[in-house]
């Protein structure tokens, strides 16, 4: 179903023929076009039209997701510059917006997709690489004293000197969590309210059992994994091993949140695609969502 839609998308743009041309006639056409478009750069070229058209359809880079979302490139990935008539063309954007979703995701209803696309086009919403309000969630493996430990790094772009760089804005690691667990619904251990008159001599008893140490910390305390992470890395206990995967969270389109994930699978609906879409009605909604994403319960 999706394949047909994408092919007809390419077809309409390239050949300006009817939308309903059967797929069987289109594949050879696409193949011919791709062959004609080829340059003589490589020694040995793969001559496989269908494979290649799949790769054209793939959203190959996050950069391409931005350009497709904004309508800033043609079907082959050639960039449109602002002086080009097609640059950010509404029709072009409409076509792109329809292919930027993970089609296998039942969680994003067709209605919501349509509503999103309509909103984006009506309100002229564009994604801006340097516009902030988007960040990466990178799942990595570190070894802590020789044992593999997953560590999630939240990363953002930051201006620095002559350009920009990615920085770690937050860290979350399961391995740090048990140390901060506490049940505030129970009475638990405490230092009585007249401890000060005894120069807090009861602290000795309080810290006798390390497990209950967090009973003595204020209720609002939020542990900061970044501090622990940096401390352990600097002490040489925590060592980087590998990146497992990553996704991106976007709050740039006003009134919406979407998640971008990589789909490496057969077919035409591959590459960087929207894997989650939420309509945000209030700032409070947004805050709850943000906290959820950052593992701040």
């Amino acid at each position: 179903m999706f394949t047909i839609r994408l092919i007809s998308f390419i077809n309409r743009s390239f050949f300006k023929t009817a939308y309903t041309v059967p797929r069987i006639f289109l594949l050879p056409l696409i193949f011919i076009v791709l062959t004609l478009c080829s340059t003589n750069g490589y020694g040995q070229m793969v001559k496989d039209g269908e494979d290649e058209s799949r790769l054209y359809a793939q959203t190959k880079q996050i950069n391409q997701f931005f350009r497709r979302f904004n309508g800033e490139e043609d079907e082959k990935g050639e960039r449109y510059y602002p002086n080009n008539k097609q640059y950010r063309n509404v029709k072009l954007r409409k076509k792109y917006l329809s292919i930027l979703f993970d089609e296998n995701n039942g969680g994003i209803s067709k209605d919501l997709q349509v509503q999103f696309a309509k909103d984006v086009l009506e309100k002229n919403l564009f994604l801006n690489f340097h516009g902030g309000n988007w960040f990466a969630e990178v799942h990595t493996i570190f070894t802590m004293n020789g044992k593999d430990q997953p560590v999630t790094l939240f990363m953002e772009l930051e201006k620095h000197h002559q350009g920009t760089r990615w920085i770690i804005s937050k860290v979350y690691a399961d391995m740090f969590e048990p140390y901060f667990k506490r049940d505030t619904t129970k009475i638990g251990q405490f230092l009585h309210p007249l401890s000060h008159e005894l120069a807090f001599m009861n602290l000795r008893k309080a810290f006798n059992n390390p497990d209950s140490a967090n009973h003595y910390i204020n209720k609002r305390f939020r542990p900061d994994h970044s501090t622990l992470f940096l401390y352990e890395v600097k002490r040489g206990n925590l060592r980087f091993k590998t990146v497992e995967d990553m996704k991106f969270h976007f709050f740039q389109a006003a009134g919406w949140y979407f998640e971008l994930s990589l789909f490496n699978r057969p077919g035409y609906n591959t590459g960087w695609l929207i894997s989650n879409l939420v309509k945000i009605n209030t700032d409070k909604d947004k805050e709850i969502l943000r906290k959820h994403l950052y593992y701040e319960k």
């Binding site: 070229m45 793969v46 054209y56 391409q64 990935g77 350009g163």
Partner: peptide, 21 residues
């Protein structure tokens, strides 16, 4: 061994990094 290249490529924007490159 046969190594073949697809004719397809994609080029990102050029972004400036802190050292000016």
């Amino acid at each position: 061994v046969s190594i073949e290249w697809y004719n397809i490529f994609y080029i990102s924007d050029l972004e400036r990094q802190p050292d000016g490159r």
